[in-house]
Amino acid sequence: MISWSVLLNWLFQTGVAFIATIAFAIIFHTPRKEYVFAGITGGAGWLVYLASMGFGADTVIASFFASVALAWLSRIFSFARREPVTIFLICGIFPIVPGAGIYYTGYHFFMSDNSLALSKGLETIKIAIAIALGIGIVLSLPRFFFTLRRTTACKKGASS
């Protein structure tokens, strides 16, 4: 059972991820009407990451699940909002990108601590591959997984 303090911490971190994703969306020149949806994507991805870590997954597996969730949500928003999926995906991935791992890899490398640099570098590469696999799996799924309604023109054209 997860305690209330852990849930409140997850809620706070999800809110921060939501706001940070909107800030990145502004920098990325996302259309204004899509800020909230990009924020929801980033917040949801971070929440899945936190929940996965909370239930015992390691960083690589948690990053995979988070990328699957945010790619799924990005495709849903893409079809619902009639915008390119990259608007939501690139902004939403911002919270789970292993920036600290890249930084510490370089730091340990330049400080001549090669074993720590190698360790951090391999972990960062694993996380990046997990994120890429999660996104690739979701983006390769057929369109009907992400649309709720069928167009009547397609149905009429098929029966004619």
Rank of each mutant, 00 (worst) to 15 (best):
G39M: 03
I93C: 10
L139C: 10
L116H: 12
K126A: 10
G157W: 11
F94W: 14
I87S: 00
L139G: 06
F18P: 02
L148S: 14
G99R: 14
S119D: 14
I127L: 05
A38L: 02
L70P: 01
S160F: 15
F110M: 13
R82G: 10
F144V: 09
W72P: 00
I93D: 04
T21V: 07
F37P: 01
L70K: 02
A17P: 04
T86R: 00
V68Y: 00
T105Y: 03
L139T: 12
T41K: 01
A80H: 15
G92V: 00
A62I: 01
I96G: 01
S115Q: 15
A158Q: 14
A100W: 03
I135G: 03
G39A: 10
I40R: 00
A69E: 00
F110A: 14
P98C: 07
L148D: 13
R81G: 01
S52P: 06
W10P: 05
Y107M: 11
W4L: 14
S3G: 15
R149K: 15
A71T: 08
F144T: 11
L133C: 14
S3N: 14
G54M: 04
S160Q: 13
E34S: 15
F28Y: 15
S159R: 13
F77R: 00
A66E: 04
I129A: 13
S119M: 13
L8D: 08
M1E: 13
A25S: 15
V16F: 06
I102C: 03
Y104M: 10
A130R: 04
I125C: 08
K155G: 02
V48P: 00
F37D: 06
G136N: 08
K155Q: 08
L133D: 05
C91G: 05
E34G: 03
R143A: 12
I135Q: 05
I93M: 15
A23T: 11
S5R: 10
I135D: 03
R82W: 08
K156M: 10
S119H: 14
F145P: 03
F65I: 07
A69K: 00
A25M: 07
L116K: 15
F37L: 10
S119T: 15
S3H: 14
S159V: 10
